[in-house]
Write a protein that binds this DNA or RNA. Structure first.
Lengths: 242, 242
DNA sequence: TAGTGGTCTAGACCACGGT
DNA sequence: CCGTGGTCTAGACCACTAA
């Protein structure tokens, strides 16, 4: 473990256990550099992590301060932001399984070509899965992935987690994602698989997901019944002057 | 403008105009330091911005590379992530106005106390607004704000933007937000104000918003008809090893 | 082994806030 | 004015990748 991360963790611990109180003064960078027997640049790198994670903020000429919601964020931080999933009540309460409804290979349409940044001649998987939480139908998934980016998908892979396959078997890193969230009326598939009544709203997430080298690998739509969980997220505000 | 931001902008421009091609090699840090007549630390600070914004990635021992989706991100980047709002088609196509449905002061309930981190004795505004895009009802908003955090709210302020008031009049900075998104069946208010039919789903966003010093100032619920826009967001993946 | 990025140092000067 | 954080330097050593 490198020095600046160790220092960041130490300071984070002090914030959580109350050594550094919210709204209160904070040892200045020179003092911290002395205490940790390091240079000020290294202290700044440590503080930058905490600043990015929303624990502290600094005011030039004045000092560095613990945010009042530091402890709230510390709980949510690990779960949300990069994770889109079930509400906490549902996550951890059971196991997720998948039933493959259809699995074919075809050429992409125009929208898929644009979203995935591929040519019409580059074939894609077309996958429909119904995902269960403890035998309870939860999500209806329609996924399109370019074969040349994610090779070797089989029924066996689809029975588990595609993401696990990508990360552990293909050794590729998952990167950014663009998502669009909306509500919709149920269609026939929703009624059949998600057991929607005619007036049960559906929460839909459309997303394009990228590998960490910027190659798009998934264009998907997932639908869930309105009473089967929400989407939770944390937004850490970004500065605009960059 | 400081040096490392200028360098970051210059390099970003080169990525956008194609001087540095996606997937291709990239001048190394020593070379860039020479070109920009600066130290390597400064170059690294510039590259860190671009890395954070999703334009590039670096591999130790190998080099720095432009991500394949760099240009896609450059378009979305400014809009999304910190901004939750209408889809682009709807934003920019008109002016947003507000009608105040109710505006009272009361004591907070238990949930509000916890969410806003305040005491039951600290009064809050209770505001209901209907927001229009060009005379078209768009959002039904229910906002609860502690008076001692955001003083001086009047009907006049509510006719415009509360956020503008907070930033320009109170000179406070908006910070992080926790959001929960779900779909729901329409209630009577939705039918009356959003003109929902009985089977029109509603998209609901519940959020707690913080100032940049970590003080919670808003606990709100907004509802919109399913056909009146989506929520768009960009997730830049976070590293886990911190 | 050579070249890359990641970390770290021990200073320096500047911008800004509060006195 | 002093003390704070923000930026910057000119090196150094290390970890890793690829030839």
């Amino acid at each position: 473990m490198v020095k600046y991360k160790e220092i960041a963790n130490t300071i984070k611990q002090r914030i959580i256990d109350g050594t550094y109180e919210a709204g209160k003064p904070f040892p200045d960078q020179h003092g911290l550099a002395e205490e940790f027997e390091t240079s000020r640049m290294t202290i700044q790198k440590a503080l930058e992590i905490l600043r990015y994670e929303g624990f502290i903020y600094s005011v030039r000429g004045s000092g560095t301060f613990v945010k009042k919601n530091a402890d709230t964020l510390s709980k949510l931080d690990s779960k949300a932001d990069e994770y889109i999933g079930l509400t906490k009540q549902m996550a951890g309460t059971g196991t997720v399984t998948s039933k493959v409804l259809s699995f074919t290979i075809r050429f992409p349409n125009e929208i898929e070509c644009e979203s995935l940044q591929i040519l019409p001649s580059q074939p894609v998987y077309d996958i429909r899965r119904l995902r269960f939480l403890n035998a309870d139908p939860l999500l209806l998934e329609h996924t399109v992935m370019p074969i040349h980016v994610i090779p070797g998908i089989t029924e066996e892979v689809l029975a588990g987690s595609i993401y696990d396959y990508i990360e552990t078997r293909l050794k590729l890193g998952i990167g950014a994602a663009n998502r669009m969230i909306g509500a919709d009326k149920p269609n026939k598939d929703d009624e059949e698989y998600l057991r929607c009544q005619i007036d049960d709203p559906v929460l839909e997430v459309d997303q394009v997901v990228f590998l960490d080298n910027g190659v798009a690998f998934e264009y998907s739509q997932t639908r869930r019944r309105y009473d089967k969980g929400h989407i939770v997220m944390v937004n850490l505000n970004k500065k605009k002057d960059r």
